[in-house]
Amino acid sequence: MSLDLDTALKAITNAVAEINAGLADDKQISSGADDVLFGADSALDSVGLVNVVMAAEQHIGDESGEDIVLASEAAMSRKRSPYRSIRALAEFAVETAKDGAAE
């Protein structure tokens, strides 16, 4: 089963909602697809980032049946971080799922 961008966007948005459920009102993560998720100006710390990324992996698994890994050395050494926005993470997920299927 392959992963399309809309499914990935929906899954990651749901993942952010899941993490937000456990966060105080002033710590909520913005859920706009193009808002800064993790970057120089974001409020997210490293534990928060990992929470979002791992919840995203689970939601993508729930939605598409794809078992993908979004935190890897390859992801972190990219010139443009795949964690900069929900959209960037969704695009990265689609790409990762494709690479996985090609192997």
């Binding site: 749901n14 899941e18 993490i19 459920a21 456990g22 490293s46 534990v47 980032l49 990992v50 990324v53 791992m54 919840a55 689970q58 939601h59 729930d62 935190a71 890897s72 050395e73 992801a75 972190m76």
Partner: peptide
Amino acid sequence: HPILGASVGATIQVVDDATSPADLRIHIRK
């Protein structure tokens, strides 16, 4: 885990599986 060195995982035995996994996870996080 490549970002934190290690991450925490949990396998959780639930009473029943009628509730959706996402809702159960929200219940646990809250």
